[in-house]
Amino acid sequence: MHNFKENAIKYFFMANGMLSIIILLGIFYLLLSRSLPALQNVGLTNFFAPGYWNPTAYTTPQYSILNLIKGTFMVGAGSLIFAVPLGVACATYLAEVAGAREREVLKPIIEILAGIPSVVLGFFGLVVVAPVIAELFGLNSGINALNGSILVGIMALPTIVSLAEDAISAVPQSYRHASLALGATKWQTILRITLPAALSGIIAASMLGMGRAVGETMTVLMATGNALAKPSSFFDSVRTLSANIAIEMGEVPVGSVHYHSLFFVGFVLFMITFIINLLADVIFQRYREEI
Protein backbone atom coordinates (compact mmCIF):
# COMPACT_ATOMS: atom_id res chain seq x y z
CA MET A 1 0.00 0.00 0.00
CA HIS A 2 2.63 2.51 1.00
CA ASN A 3 4.54 1.61 -2.14
CA PHE A 4 1.80 3.10 -4.23
CA LYS A 5 1.70 6.26 -2.15
CA GLU A 6 5.46 6.56 -2.17
CA ASN A 7 5.62 6.20 -5.92
CA ALA A 8 2.83 8.71 -6.44
CA ILE A 9 4.72 11.23 -4.33
CA LYS A 10 7.94 10.52 -6.13
CA TYR A 11 6.43 11.01 -9.57
CA PHE A 12 4.63 14.14 -8.45
CA PHE A 13 7.97 15.55 -7.32
CA MET A 14 9.62 14.46 -10.51
CA ALA A 15 7.00 16.18 -12.62
CA ASN A 16 7.60 19.32 -10.62
CA GLY A 17 11.33 19.03 -11.02
CA MET A 18 10.95 18.77 -14.75
CA LEU A 19 9.13 22.08 -14.78
CA SER A 20 12.38 24.00 -15.20
CA ILE A 21 13.15 22.01 -18.33
CA ILE A 22 9.64 22.63 -19.60
CA ILE A 23 9.86 26.36 -18.92
CA LEU A 24 13.16 26.66 -20.71
CA LEU A 25 11.83 24.73 -23.70
CA GLY A 26 8.62 26.74 -23.47
CA ILE A 27 10.51 30.01 -23.69
CA PHE A 28 12.37 28.72 -26.72
CA TYR A 29 9.21 27.46 -28.39
CA LEU A 30 7.01 30.48 -27.69
CA LEU A 31 9.62 33.00 -28.76
CA LEU A 32 10.34 31.08 -31.93
CA SER A 33 6.73 30.47 -32.85
CA ARG A 34 5.88 34.13 -32.24
CA SER A 35 8.81 35.13 -34.45
CA LEU A 36 7.78 32.96 -37.38
CA PRO A 37 5.34 35.45 -38.97
CA ALA A 38 8.08 38.05 -38.92
CA LEU A 39 10.57 35.65 -40.44
CA GLN A 40 8.10 34.86 -43.23
CA ASN A 41 7.34 38.51 -43.88
CA VAL A 42 10.72 40.08 -43.46
CA GLY A 43 13.00 37.17 -44.21
CA LEU A 44 15.79 35.95 -41.97
CA THR A 45 18.53 37.59 -44.01
CA ASN A 46 16.96 41.04 -43.82
CA PHE A 47 17.24 40.96 -40.04
CA PHE A 48 20.97 40.61 -40.43
CA ALA A 49 21.44 42.77 -43.54
CA PRO A 50 23.34 46.04 -43.23
CA GLY A 51 20.96 48.86 -42.38
CA TYR A 52 18.83 50.13 -39.56
CA TRP A 53 16.06 49.06 -37.25
CA ASN A 54 13.12 51.15 -38.39
CA PRO A 55 9.97 49.04 -38.60
CA THR A 56 7.63 52.01 -38.48
CA ALA A 57 9.08 53.86 -41.47
CA TYR A 58 6.32 55.13 -43.72
CA THR A 59 7.75 53.93 -47.04
CA THR A 60 10.27 51.13 -46.54
CA PRO A 61 10.43 49.67 -43.04
CA GLN A 62 13.82 48.26 -42.15
CA TYR A 63 14.40 45.39 -39.72
CA SER A 64 18.15 45.10 -39.47
CA ILE A 65 19.20 44.27 -35.93
CA LEU A 66 22.94 44.58 -36.61
CA ASN A 67 23.25 47.92 -34.80
CA LEU A 68 21.30 46.55 -31.87
CA ILE A 69 23.62 43.57 -31.66
CA LYS A 70 26.62 45.85 -31.92
CA GLY A 71 25.23 48.07 -29.18
CA THR A 72 24.55 45.06 -27.01
CA PHE A 73 28.06 43.74 -27.33
CA MET A 74 29.63 47.17 -26.89
CA VAL A 75 27.89 47.57 -23.56
CA GLY A 76 28.58 43.94 -22.64
CA ALA A 77 32.28 44.08 -23.50
CA GLY A 78 32.69 47.57 -22.08
CA SER A 79 31.25 46.48 -18.77
CA LEU A 80 33.56 43.48 -18.58
CA ILE A 81 36.65 45.60 -19.23
CA PHE A 82 36.36 47.01 -15.78
CA ALA A 83 34.14 44.49 -14.02
CA VAL A 84 36.42 41.48 -14.65
CA PRO A 85 39.69 42.89 -13.26
CA LEU A 86 37.89 44.49 -10.36
CA GLY A 87 35.77 41.41 -9.70
CA VAL A 88 38.67 38.95 -9.87
CA ALA A 89 40.78 41.16 -7.60
CA CYS A 90 37.95 41.26 -5.05
CA ALA A 91 37.43 37.51 -5.35
CA THR A 92 41.15 36.85 -4.87
CA TYR A 93 41.23 39.03 -1.80
CA LEU A 94 38.14 37.38 -0.35
CA ALA A 95 39.29 33.84 -1.06
CA GLU A 96 43.02 34.07 -0.33
CA VAL A 97 43.94 37.09 1.74
CA ALA A 98 41.04 38.06 3.98
CA GLY A 99 40.63 36.28 7.29
CA ALA A 100 37.38 34.63 8.26
CA ARG A 101 36.31 37.67 10.28
CA GLU A 102 37.13 40.11 7.51
CA ARG A 103 35.24 37.99 5.00
CA GLU A 104 32.15 38.04 7.19
CA VAL A 105 32.23 41.83 7.01
CA LEU A 106 33.17 42.18 3.34
CA LYS A 107 30.86 39.66 1.72
CA PRO A 108 27.70 41.57 2.61
CA ILE A 109 29.04 44.51 0.57
CA ILE A 110 28.91 42.32 -2.53
CA GLU A 111 25.52 40.93 -1.52
CA ILE A 112 24.03 44.38 -0.97
CA LEU A 113 25.35 45.47 -4.36
CA ALA A 114 23.71 42.42 -5.92
CA GLY A 115 20.45 43.38 -4.24
CA ILE A 116 20.13 46.84 -5.77
CA PRO A 117 17.29 46.72 -8.31
CA SER A 118 18.48 47.42 -11.84
CA VAL A 119 16.00 50.24 -12.24
CA VAL A 120 17.59 52.04 -9.29
CA LEU A 121 21.03 51.61 -10.83
CA GLY A 122 19.71 52.93 -14.13
CA PHE A 123 18.26 55.93 -12.34
CA PHE A 124 21.58 56.54 -10.63
CA GLY A 125 23.34 56.38 -13.99
CA LEU A 126 20.89 58.81 -15.48
CA VAL A 127 21.07 61.46 -12.80
CA VAL A 128 24.55 61.06 -11.31
CA VAL A 129 26.98 59.26 -13.62
CA ALA A 130 25.85 60.85 -16.90
CA PRO A 131 26.59 64.46 -15.87
CA VAL A 132 29.99 63.38 -14.56
CA ILE A 133 30.84 61.70 -17.86
CA ALA A 134 29.64 64.71 -19.84
CA GLU A 135 31.79 66.99 -17.74
CA LEU A 136 34.90 64.78 -17.82
CA PHE A 137 34.93 64.28 -21.57
CA GLY A 138 33.37 67.57 -22.63
CA LEU A 139 30.27 66.00 -24.15
CA ASN A 140 26.77 67.38 -24.57
CA SER A 141 25.31 64.36 -22.86
CA GLY A 142 26.76 61.60 -20.77
CA ILE A 143 23.97 59.23 -21.67
CA ASN A 144 25.93 56.84 -23.88
CA ALA A 145 27.57 53.41 -24.21
CA LEU A 146 30.23 54.31 -21.66
CA ASN A 147 27.64 55.14 -19.04
CA GLY A 148 25.77 51.93 -19.81
CA SER A 149 29.00 49.93 -19.58
CA ILE A 150 29.88 51.32 -16.18
CA LEU A 151 26.46 50.63 -14.72
CA VAL A 152 26.05 47.21 -16.28
CA GLY A 153 29.55 46.48 -15.00
CA ILE A 154 28.38 47.27 -11.48
CA MET A 155 25.39 45.05 -12.15
CA ALA A 156 27.56 42.12 -13.30
CA LEU A 157 30.18 42.59 -10.60
CA PRO A 158 28.53 40.51 -7.84
CA THR A 159 28.05 37.57 -10.23
CA ILE A 160 31.71 37.66 -11.21
CA VAL A 161 32.97 38.07 -7.64
CA SER A 162 30.98 35.24 -6.12
CA LEU A 163 31.63 32.75 -8.92
CA ALA A 164 35.32 33.63 -9.20
CA GLU A 165 35.62 33.26 -5.44
CA ASP A 166 34.05 29.81 -5.70
CA ALA A 167 36.53 28.89 -8.40
CA ILE A 168 39.55 30.13 -6.44
CA SER A 169 38.43 28.49 -3.20
CA ALA A 170 38.01 25.20 -5.05
CA VAL A 171 41.75 24.99 -5.79
CA PRO A 172 43.04 22.16 -3.58
CA GLN A 173 44.90 23.24 -0.47
CA SER A 174 47.73 20.86 -1.35
CA TYR A 175 48.77 23.08 -4.29
CA ARG A 176 49.17 26.06 -2.02
CA HIS A 177 51.01 24.09 0.63
CA ALA A 178 53.40 22.63 -1.91
CA SER A 179 54.25 26.09 -3.17
CA LEU A 180 54.60 27.60 0.28
CA ALA A 181 56.80 24.71 1.37
CA LEU A 182 59.19 25.56 -1.45
CA GLY A 183 59.70 28.97 0.10
CA ALA A 184 57.31 30.95 -2.10
CA THR A 185 55.54 33.89 -0.52
CA LYS A 186 51.78 33.91 -0.26
CA TRP A 187 51.52 36.37 -3.13
CA GLN A 188 53.84 34.31 -5.36
CA THR A 189 51.68 31.31 -4.59
CA ILE A 190 48.51 33.17 -5.51
CA LEU A 191 49.95 34.59 -8.71
CA ARG A 192 51.80 31.53 -9.99
CA ILE A 193 49.82 28.62 -8.59
CA THR A 194 46.34 29.42 -7.34
CA LEU A 195 45.09 31.83 -9.99
CA PRO A 196 46.45 29.82 -12.96
CA ALA A 197 44.87 26.69 -11.49
CA ALA A 198 41.56 28.52 -11.17
CA LEU A 199 41.81 30.14 -14.59
CA SER A 200 39.09 28.24 -16.40
CA GLY A 201 36.76 28.77 -13.45
CA ILE A 202 37.50 32.50 -13.55
CA ILE A 203 36.86 32.58 -17.29
CA ALA A 204 33.52 30.87 -16.74
CA ALA A 205 32.67 33.40 -14.05
CA SER A 206 33.47 36.24 -16.44
CA MET A 207 31.33 34.68 -19.13
CA LEU A 208 28.39 34.41 -16.78
CA GLY A 209 28.97 38.06 -15.95
CA MET A 210 28.86 38.72 -19.70
CA GLY A 211 25.59 36.83 -19.92
CA ARG A 212 24.09 39.04 -17.24
CA ALA A 213 25.44 42.18 -18.92
CA VAL A 214 24.05 41.25 -22.32
CA GLY A 215 20.62 40.51 -20.94
CA GLU A 216 20.39 43.50 -18.63
CA THR A 217 17.43 45.70 -19.54
CA MET A 218 16.45 48.52 -17.23
CA THR A 219 19.93 49.84 -16.59
CA VAL A 220 20.83 50.15 -20.26
CA LEU A 221 17.38 51.40 -21.11
CA MET A 222 17.86 54.34 -18.79
CA ALA A 223 21.56 55.02 -19.19
CA THR A 224 22.54 54.51 -22.83
CA GLY A 225 20.23 56.87 -24.73
CA ASN A 226 18.78 54.22 -27.04
CA ALA A 227 19.70 55.88 -30.36
CA LEU A 228 19.23 53.70 -33.42
CA ALA A 229 22.20 55.08 -35.33
CA LYS A 230 25.24 52.95 -35.90
CA PRO A 231 27.48 53.42 -32.85
CA SER A 232 31.10 54.23 -33.59
CA SER A 233 32.50 54.95 -30.15
CA PHE A 234 31.70 54.55 -26.49
CA PHE A 235 30.65 58.19 -26.43
CA ASP A 236 27.78 57.43 -28.79
CA SER A 237 24.31 56.68 -27.65
CA VAL A 238 23.46 53.04 -28.31
CA ARG A 239 20.41 50.82 -28.17
CA THR A 240 20.68 47.20 -27.06
CA LEU A 241 18.48 44.25 -28.01
CA SER A 242 16.89 44.20 -24.58
CA ALA A 243 16.21 47.94 -24.49
CA ASN A 244 14.71 47.75 -27.96
CA ILE A 245 12.11 45.28 -26.78
CA ALA A 246 11.37 47.28 -23.65
CA ILE A 247 10.87 50.50 -25.60
CA GLU A 248 8.71 49.21 -28.43
CA MET A 249 6.75 46.28 -27.07
CA GLY A 250 4.33 48.46 -25.15
CA GLU A 251 3.24 50.49 -28.14
CA VAL A 252 3.25 48.05 -31.00
CA PRO A 253 -0.05 46.76 -32.41
CA VAL A 254 -0.48 43.12 -31.44
CA GLY A 255 -0.12 40.80 -34.43
CA SER A 256 1.71 43.24 -36.71
CA VAL A 257 4.97 42.35 -38.42
CA HIS A 258 6.67 44.78 -36.06
CA TYR A 259 5.19 42.93 -33.08
CA HIS A 260 6.45 39.58 -34.29
CA SER A 261 9.81 41.11 -35.13
CA LEU A 262 10.19 42.12 -31.50
CA PHE A 263 9.68 38.50 -30.54
CA PHE A 264 12.43 37.63 -32.97
CA VAL A 265 14.69 40.20 -31.29
CA GLY A 266 13.82 38.47 -28.01
CA PHE A 267 14.63 35.11 -29.55
CA VAL A 268 18.04 36.34 -30.71
CA LEU A 269 18.75 37.77 -27.27
CA PHE A 270 17.65 34.52 -25.64
CA MET A 271 19.90 32.47 -27.91
CA ILE A 272 22.92 34.73 -27.31
CA THR A 273 22.60 34.57 -23.55
CA PHE A 274 21.72 30.89 -23.66
CA ILE A 275 24.87 30.04 -25.60
CA ILE A 276 27.07 32.21 -23.38
CA ASN A 277 25.58 30.70 -20.23
CA LEU A 278 25.72 27.15 -21.49
CA LEU A 279 29.37 27.51 -22.52
CA ALA A 280 30.23 29.07 -19.17
CA ASP A 281 28.34 26.30 -17.44
CA VAL A 282 30.20 23.57 -19.31
CA ILE A 283 33.55 25.20 -18.55
CA PHE A 284 32.63 25.64 -14.90
CA GLN A 285 31.41 22.09 -14.41
CA ARG A 286 34.44 20.66 -16.14
CA TYR A 287 36.65 22.80 -13.94
CA ARG A 288 34.84 21.52 -10.86
CA GLU A 289 35.41 17.95 -11.90
CA GLU A 290 39.07 18.49 -12.68
CA ILE A 291 39.82 20.12 -9.35
Binding site: L24, I27, L208, R212, G215, S242, A246, G266, F270
Partner: peptide, 8 residues
Protein backbone atom coordinates in the same frame (compact mmCIF):
# COMPACT_ATOMS: atom_id res chain seq x y z
CA UNK B 1 20.64 33.45 -16.90
CA UNK B 2 17.62 34.16 -19.09
CA UNK B 3 17.34 37.96 -19.46
CA UNK B 4 14.44 39.38 -17.49
CA UNK B 5 13.02 41.09 -20.57
CA UNK B 6 12.85 37.69 -22.27
CA UNK B 7 10.83 36.45 -19.30
CA UNK B 8 8.61 39.46 -19.96
Amino acid sequence: GVPSIVFG
